[in-house]
Amino acid sequence: MELWDQDIAPYGEQLEALDSSPLADLVLDVVASTIPLFEPPFDHFFPQPHFELVESVLSLRAQAPTSWWDDAAFAREFLARYDLLPDVPTRPAVGPFLMVLVRLFEAPRGCLSADQALECLSSCYEAVLVSQLTGRVTVADERQNAKCQQAIAHQTGLLLRALG
């Protein structure tokens, strides 16, 4: 995670200038950009109920791109569905990735902070990292891993766009 700390964490102060809605959009953009980085592909990487839960969030945003974040009923439903996920073996990356969405929907409507958004971005990167590398990981290992590099590049691009 040292690479993420070096390349992405410094944007935290700039994120404080954004309101909750753009921060939530940024988080979900990062979630969407992280999905293609999983190997095997996302729909095989996650158990079916977990995959469907993530897909429900992406579908909500596709249906209501400007108001998805304000849907308190969906947030309650998402968290209830999360609590009911079956206790099945999952890859190590599944936990941090789902926690991004849990943090997002646990935040009171209109009260997502820059720190919370940054934690979500960190968890997205962590999910990629643990899906790619195991054991004692160095910054050099992260820099040499194509998926870690792609995750950092995607997050950097999305951050710069959000900060516009």
Rank of each mutant, 00 (worst) to 15 (best):
F38W: 07
L58C: 04
R109H: 08
E2N: 09
D5H: 10
L129R: 11
F42K: 03
D141A: 11
V54Q: 13
D115T: 08
R109S: 09
R143L: 14
S21F: 11
S33C: 12
A117S: 15
W68V: 08
D71Q: 12
V100W: 12
H44F: 13
N145V: 05
Q144F: 06
D43G: 10
F105I: 05
L85A: 12
A140Y: 01
A127G: 10
A151Y: 08
Y82W: 11
R109L: 14
D71C: 02
T66S: 14
W69V: 10
H154T: 07
F42E: 15
A24I: 01
A140R: 08
L104W: 03
D19Y: 01
D115H: 06
Y125S: 05
L121D: 05
E126H: 10
S21K: 09
S113G: 11
R61G: 07
V94I: 13
A80H: 10
I152T: 05
R76P: 00
L104R: 06
L85R: 12
T34M: 09
S113M: 03
I35H: 02
P22M: 11
E77V: 03
A24H: 01
F97P: 13
L121M: 12
S20G: 12
G110W: 11
A80I: 01
W68I: 06
A17H: 07
V27D: 02
P86W: 09
R61A: 11
S21M: 06
S21I: 04
V57H: 03
A32M: 10
D25M: 04
M99V: 02
F105M: 04
E142F: 03
P49T: 11
L28C: 08
G164F: 00
A117Y: 09
Q155C: 09
L98H: 14
I152S: 03
T90H: 08
L37E: 04
Q116S: 15
L159I: 05
E142W: 05
L37R: 07
H154A: 15
A140P: 00
V130W: 02
L163S: 08
S123N: 13
